[in-house]
């Protein structure tokens, strides 16, 4: 078996999700190559070459890949696909945009968001917002897959010594161009890979009040997330949404503040190791999944929590 892993990165650093995708590739077994496509990605390629278990890193360094446009990336991947039995990427916004395109161009199905490998042709994935877990078998010659990073413990970031090969394949589909982007800058850990996540819901009442959660996050080294209701109400940006149609997180500790616990929200966080819920409604469904529930007004509980954490 021969597996091509598409690295997830932001042109300057390799995302930890890639290490989880490599772990999924190891679970399949066989030779593992990594493609780093982007602009000025030298440092990313170096990091990928050090990851445990990688044989070869291929680098496609060109402005046409700089913004990860699916139209261009998919053509590049299809060009390299020959000889690979599996093509894997993280189920982030780039992977979700690009991999179905790759699959369609290869005339194969795509398997989304796998959380386990049963056999080289059999994979496990959640459906219906995680209310059911399906085991899927593929009859295609090439398996095109997106991997849910929380399903696989990342391989070691250091210790490998893969060869690095520069490609000069430039694929510009000429269909789309980048116009602009607004990316939230934050010194806090990445939501998707943080060890502790504290999320606020509609109960937070406004964006200003999220500062209270940010202060706690800074004391704990946590990332801040949100429910869809908090995002829709404009309290916080969309990329903070945790859930079926937002980010999937599985930290050591998840603290839900003023969140009712709709199935779509639970789909994004119920694999967390320890769940804490702070809600004034003792009937809130979030308490059914919480290890520690505190029935309280968050505007009293959160300042107290800050005090307690400062004492520690």
């Amino acid at each position: 078996m021969s597996i091509l892993v598409i690295a997830e990165h932001d042109n300057s650093s390799l995302k930890q999700a890639t290490l989880s995708v490599i772990a999924a590739a190891k679970a399949i077994g066989g030779n593992i190559d990594v493609l780093v496509a982007g602009e000025n990605v030298g440092a990313v390629a170096e990091a990928a070459a050090k990851a445990d278990g990688v044989n070869k890193v291929m680098v496609a360094n060109n402005a046409v890949y700089g913004h990860f446009l699916g139209e261009n990336l998919s053509q590049l991947i299809v060009e390299l696909a020959e000889g690979y039995t599996h093509i894997l990427a993280a189920a982030g916004s780039t992977g979700k945009d690009t991999m179905p395109r790759v699959a369609a161009l290869l005339d194969v199905a795509q398997i989304s968001d796998i959380i386990r490998v049963e056999a080289p042709d059999t994979f496990v994935r959640p459906i219906y917002a995680g209310n059911a877990i399906a085991t899927i078998k593929s009859s295609d010659s090439v398996k095109v897959i997106t991997v849910r990073p929380t399903g696989f413990d990342p391989v070691a970031a250091e210790g490998g010594s893969a060869s690095v090969e520069q490609l000069d394949v430039v694929k510009d589909a000429g269909l789309s161009t980048f116009v602009s982007e607004q990316k939230a800058k934050s010194d806090r850990p990445d939501l998707a890979s943080a060890g502790i996540v504290i999320s606020g819901g509609r109960g937070m009442q406004n964006g200003e009040n999220f500062k209270m959660l940010e202060q706690i996050a800074d004391l704990m080294g946590a990332a801040v997330g949100a429910s869809r209701a908090a995002v829709d109400a404009g309290f916080v940006p969309n990329d903070m949404q945790v859930g079926q149609t937002g980010k999937i997180v599985a930290p050591q500790l998840y603290i839900a503040v003023g969140i009712s616990g709709a199935i779509q929200h639970l789909a994004g966080m119920s694999d967390s190791k320890v769940i804490v819920a702070i809600n004034k409604d003792e009937e809130a469904p979030i308490f059914q999944v919480a290890d520690y529930g505190l029935v309280a007004d968050l505007f009293e509980a959160i300042p107290q929590l800050e005090e307690e954490l400062k004492k520690a």
């Binding site: 194969v108 877990i133 593929s138 003792e282 999944v289 919480a290 520690y292 505190l294």
Partner: peptide
């Protein structure tokens, strides 16, 4: 191209305990 081998219910989480206060 894909066949469903089986569909299972997810491992269900047990509700834990209620704590009295922040401390």
């Amino acid at each position: 191209r894909l066949t469903t081998v089986k569909v299972e219910a997810p491992a269900s989480r047990q509700a834990g305990i209620k704590v009295a206060d922040v401390a």
